[in-house]
Amino acid sequence: MSSIASNKSPADLQAMPHWMQQVLGVASLAEGQSFDLGGQAFVVKDDIPRSKKLVSQAQAQTSDTFGFKWKKVDTFDSPASLARMREWLIERYGDLSKASWLGEHGESPLLIDAGCGAGMSGLELLGPLVPRLRYLGVDVSEAVDVARTRFQERGLQAGFLQADISELPLPKESVDLIFSEGVLHHTNSTEGALKSLASLLKPGGRFLFYVYKKKGPLREFTDDYVRDKLQPVSPEQAWKLMEPLTQLGISLGELNAEIDIPQAIDLLGIPAGRINVQRLFYWHVAKTFYRPDLTFDEMNHINFDWYAPANAQRQSIEQVRAWCADAQLEIEREVIEDAGITIIARKETRG
Rank of each mutant, 00 (worst) to 15 (best):
L161P: 05
E167W: 01
E167Q: 14
P169T: 08
P169L: 06
K172Q: 12
E173F: 00
S174Y: 03
V175C: 01
L177K: 04
I178Y: 03
F179N: 09
F179C: 04
S180I: 06
V183G: 05
H186A: 07
H186P: 04
N188E: 15
S189E: 13
G192H: 03
A193P: 06
S196G: 15
S196E: 10
L197Q: 11
L197G: 08
S199G: 15
L201G: 06
G204W: 12
G204I: 12
R206G: 01
Y212V: 08
K213C: 12
K215C: 03
K215H: 12
L218W: 09
L218Y: 05
D223W: 07
D224Q: 15
D224L: 13
V226P: 01
V226N: 08
R227I: 08
R227Q: 13
K229L: 15
L230W: 05
L230A: 03
Q231E: 14
Q231W: 12
S234W: 02
P235I: 01
E236I: 00
E236N: 02
Q237S: 11
W239K: 09
K240G: 00
K240C: 00
L241T: 00
M242E: 08
E243L: 13
P244Y: 02
Q247D: 12
G249K: 10
G249L: 08
I250S: 10
I250T: 14
L252G: 14
N256E: 14
